[in-house]
Amino acid sequence: MLHAKIIDIKKEKIEVSKAEEFVSSSKFGASLIFRGTVRETNENKKVTGITYDSHDVMVIKSFEEIYKEVDKKLKIKDKAVYIEHVKGYLGLGEISIIIAVACPHRAETYILSRYIIEEIKKRSPIWKKEHYENEESEWLKGNPIQAN
């Protein structure tokens, strides 16, 4: 069971309560909610906010691929996964990503949640532009995507 969505922050909110609801089931004995938020410093610079950009279709496709491959790679078949990522401007402390997972046992939830965020960072076409106190801003260096 997967929920995958890009939240355009100009039009709607990203809400932890929806993630909690999605992963709540008596089928599962453990659930975990990961939130990524905007941090106030990066590489000794004072950050005031981040603008997120996204290739929406490819991002959703990458979330679906990550979800599907978990069966084989992690041998976690029984699971609920909720992934939402924001695009647009966020201020300090605001949530950029929610990954909620639920599995029968706790060990699987930790493994699954960590796997998903690490794969998103490697594979999902999302970009960050940091804004600083001096009103400058900068696109962050990322990881190149390789063609197959």
């Binding site: 490819m58 990503i97 960072k121 076409p125 960050k128």
Partner: peptide, 21 residues
């Protein structure tokens, strides 16, 4: 890939190095 041929009017997306989360 870099060898992909564009043969008609079309949209191509440029995907700079990524880093969300």
């Amino acid at each position: 890939s870099e060898n992909y041929k564009i043969t008609k009017d079309q949209k191509i997306g440029i995907i700079p190095p990524i880093g969300g989360g």
